[in-house]
Design a protein around this nucleic acid. Sequence first.
RNA 1: GGUGAGGUGGCUGAGUGGUCGAAAGCAGCGCUUUGCUAAAGCGCCGUACUCCUAAAGGGUACCGGGGGUUCGAAUCCCCCCCUCACCGCCA
Length: 421
Amino acid sequence: MIDIRLLREQPDYVKTRLAARGSDLGECIDAALALDGERRAAETRLQNLQADRNRLSKEIGRLRAGGNDTTTLEAQSKAHAAEMQELSNQSAALEEKQHALLLALPNLPQATVPAGKDAADNTLVREWGEKPVLENPQDHLVIATRLKLLDFDRAAKISGSGFVCYTGPGARLERALINFLLDLHTREHGYVEINPPHVVRSEALVGTSQLPKFEDQQYRVANDDLYLVPTAEVPVTNLHREEILPCEALPIKYAAYTPCFRREAGSAGLGTRGLIRMHQFDKVELVKICRPENSHTELESLTADAERVLQTLGLPYRVVELCTGDLGFGSARTYDIEVWSPGQNAYLEVSSCSNFEDFQARRMNLRYKAEDGKNRFCHTLNGSGTALARLYVALLENGLQTDGSVRLPEPLHAYFGAGVL
RNA sequence: GGUGAGGUGGCUGAGUGGUCGAAAGCAGCGCUUUGCUAAAGCGCCGUACUCCUAAAGGGUACCGGGGGUUCGAAUCCCCCCCUCACCGCCA
């Protein structure tokens, strides 16, 4: 959520920065500012009346204690009751409208984020690894079907399209990847492992800005008004919602595995074959909560931690920085890590490492107590430690041998128990 | 699903309808004493909004949320939410 004060004091600055995202939010901002003015006028008037009433009430108390008559003062105090009621209703209504508008505004991109319209304008930051030379690259779906790792047809029977059933060694490999990632991040990168609830309240989704704007992307459990998590970012970031953290507790680093549920309503990509885009997928997420002055370097190290996964597995990848037009709703800056997929002959996003600055923290009222005693908003960051389905794709396609088998990278052997599928 | 107990400032925890924004303690900050540490003493120490060009300084609101009673509500009444405990049912 954008600071209303920034909006009030530098509306044009906010407008130009948001305009870089490509959607014109000028009207929305003007509306919020107009409401702000109205609200404050009503509040000021109300507060003056309240001050008046408080003074009279005190006076009445004093007089009564002395046994004096107070009917005149009581009448005076009552005189403004109707107007006060009206003003109070007004300012509450205005406040609510303004809040709704503010929740609908995306985060400001950082000044250094390259300007651009869509993914085509993202900038290449670095590349790593050698693409394997394959005589006959195959799509992961072909490989997985031959090796009986996945069963899409039966998954569709029980859950509909967009779901997969991992079978036999296929299921075992998925489990191996989860363990491998959690161990890597907790043992070598200093993250604390979290296993959060997979179903959350709406407030949690508001906190990480999936709601109110992206309601139609969420799976809702109607009976209890709960939501299936679209990413572990939601429960894990919200762990400290409404808290004031001691400054020495920062940075907080969490790693969490959860399945992720997304309706992908209106998504063109859902037609994609295989594992690339599904309603349910596994992910190991990294979340950091840090001090504002450190969030810049924390994003770099978060990205490095996520890259380390691919380096350890020897999978070629590249890092791109998202341009202003491609940036997610809550993000001020994002690096995408894209793994090479020989079967698609393209790069696939596996990790999205974002700095939300204080955008989420303001929504969650997540603060820390600074050395000077002031409570300040934290900065939050996260990186999808890896969308496992796409990592899975990359492993199958990059590890394909001439005999049709798939060789797994050595670091996985301890988890999978065999080097070859 | 049933019953009970609770929700007060960063934390713990008092609070009779009228100087209660709220006792006390802890934590924090400052000062004094001290060679250092420790200890002790004294003082300061909530948040949001708002008025003011700004500072200084005012004002208002906030004791889970929302209504109500009242000149006046942390305190009385109603509804809701949440937390905890126990019981039942199921895994």
